[in-house]
Nucleic acid binder design. Structure first.
Lengths: 132, 132
DNA sequence: ATTACTGCAAAGCATTTGCAGACTG
DNA sequence: CAGTCTGCAAATGCTTTGCAGTAAT
């Protein structure tokens, strides 16, 4: 709840959304955030949650990722890269420990492309769902 | 037009979609495919195009990728990895020449995750759109 | 007091689905 | 001819938008 960006109003809903993201340490969809808010008895409308999440993304407090089925998930920007392997059966997300892109960015910069960020998603089967 | 999967009916629409993908050598959205079909005077309904593209993905003739704005794009599976850098302003897609994931898969396999595939998208600004 | 934010409803858009008629093998 | 595929329409589901009232500074 510290590091609140200058000029951004501290509303009940925004604080509640941030607190949800701080608690979970994994990416959530907008509607998952909504459910958690309800569970915390701090309900907020889904469209409000979207607006707050997009605001957080813009302020770089939150990182947005698109997953296979065209759903966006959001997680706190802990200022280190995180990528996930997503199980195609149960949708479990397994965090990967390092980022294969690091040594890759310079090549692109050479090609006159200025890299702002990237998404990487790996899909397959987790141990519980792996077809024998 | 060769290598038609066994048992898959050769309809006019399927041949036309495949031919569009063969011609462009870059990923297209379903509706872009649709427009190209119209331009070729082989019109097909958008829902049909979706069905055909998803069929091709299933048959591994086509690779599907999700981009930032929750739109899926499809391109011919030329059996080598391709990844793109996407310009955040003009949406131009710049092909990257190699895949940073190759040396990365074994680490995941160690973690008891069986890797089927991956998507990687890099975003930033192309030379024409780069803020000075 | 001013300005920005939220609840709510409704729209927007990509994608999916159901069904009857048309086409392929 | 049997079974599949397509055109079409309508539904679905995530996300966005408009607006009037509410809350923050």
């Amino acid at each position: 709840m510290d590091n609140w960006p200058e000029g951004m109003k501290k509303t009940k809903q925004r604080k509640a959304v941030l607190s949800v993201l701080e608690q979970v340490d994994k990416p959530l969809s907008a509607s998952e955030v909504c459910s958690k808010l309800e569970a915390n008895e701090e309900p907020a409308w889904l469209s409000t949650v979207y607006r707050i999440l997009e605001l957080f993304v813009e302020k770089e407090m939150v990182v947005k990722t698109n997953v296979l089925n065209n759903i966006s998930v959001y997680e706190l920007n802990r200022h280190k890269h995180k990528h996930y392997a997503i199980c195609m059966k149960c949708n479990k997300m397994i965090r990967m420990n390092n980022c294969p892109m690091i040594e890759f960015v310079p090549e692109l910069e050479d090609q006159k492309f200025s890299v702002v960020g990237h998404n990487l998603e790996v899909f397959g089967f987790c141990i519980d769902c792996k077809p024998h």
